[in-house]
Simulated scan of single mutants.
Amino acid sequence: MSKIRKKKIKKTNILLGFICILLAVLLGFILVTSYKSEQKESRHLSEIADDQQSGIEDYEAVKERAKELEEVSSEEAEDTEDIKSKNTEDTKDTEKTDTADTEDTKDKTTAASGIVCWGDDLINGEESNTYSYMTVLQKLLTDNGYNMTVINKTLQGGGTLSMMKMAGVSDETIQSYITKHQQAANGAQLNVTETGIRDLTEEQTTRNDMDCIPVIFMGYYGGWNHDPAELADQQEQILNTFQNKDQFIVVGTRPMDGSVTSEALDQVLSQKWGEHYISLADVTAQPSSTYEAQQAMAEAILQKLQELNYISKN
């Protein structure tokens, strides 16, 4: 055999041997990898089995817990129904009590320290001590067994602007009325009560009547630009200064200068104040400054106080 051929055979054998070694290494790697994979899969299957077993146990525990909760919920539902039933009965009893209290309240007068008359005093001097509607009203209350004091907060000859000032209505609000009067006059001369405010004493502006029942009699001397709607608004400004805004009486009479008729005044004020309103024109045909008119007004005020259940003999 030639040397060349021997060399080729030797090289081939070396190559084959090298290939065999590679195949052996590859096979070993495959076997090791397969073994690890099997081990990993085995562990995974074992974990799944454990989880399934745990899941079964948890499921059984959950079922048992759900059963317990269902029993508790059933008991709580029964308790809730009992509570609801009891609350319903209590509510009905409370409603009955509240209704009874409401009915009692309707028959009882809200506590008031007295009756206060705001506005115009139409009788001067000593005559007012005997014949004014305030003096007559006090006598009527006493004679009829009502322990109520009548307070005088009238302003002789004063306009409604001064009355609002005395009640504590803000200067800004009062000025707005004055400005409106001046604009409506368009340069014409106005009565002093339409633009002026009287100088008031500390005694006049001190309020000791805010828990009283107000009787508002104002407008005779002007100050409201001959507009009944504005007069009603000014009356409301004074009423708003009182603690109890639900108990009050408004008495209406036409102004001294005759600029507004009793009919026009009553139409606006009666609509504004409803059952709280007394029209002096419906009470007497006498001029408001007469003794007869003052007596009639006092009697009408007493009747209205009784009708509205503002006063009690208890």
Rank of each mutant, 00 (worst) to 15 (best):
K7E: 11
K10M: 08
K11H: 08
N13L: 14
L16R: 11
G17I: 08
G17C: 08
C20N: 08
C20M: 12
L22M: 11
L26F: 07
T33C: 05
S34N: 09
Y35M: 03
K36E: 02
S37A: 08
R43M: 00
E57N: 15
D58K: 14
D58W: 11
E60S: 12
E64Q: 12
E70H: 06
D79C: 08
D79Q: 15
E81D: 14
K84D: 10
S85N: 15
S85Q: 13
N87S: 12
N87A: 12
T88G: 09
T94M: 09
T97V: 10
D104N: 15
G114N: 00
G119W: 00
D120A: 02
L122I: 00
N124P: 15
M134R: 15
L137P: 02
Q138V: 03
N144I: 01
G145Q: 01
N147E: 13
T149N: 07
V150S: 04
T154Y: 04
K165C: 05
M166T: 03
Q175I: 04
Q175P: 07
Q175G: 04
S176A: 12
Q183Y: 07
A184S: 11
N186H: 05
G187S: 08
L200R: 11
D209E: 12
V215M: 01
G222Y: 02
W224E: 01
D227A: 12
D227K: 11
E236M: 13
N240K: 14
Q247L: 09
I249F: 11
I249N: 07
V250R: 03
V251P: 00
G252Q: 00
T253P: 02
T253W: 13
D257M: 02
A264E: 14
D266H: 07
S279V: 07
I301C: 01
L302E: 02
L305M: 01
Y310L: 05
I311K: 01
N314L: 10
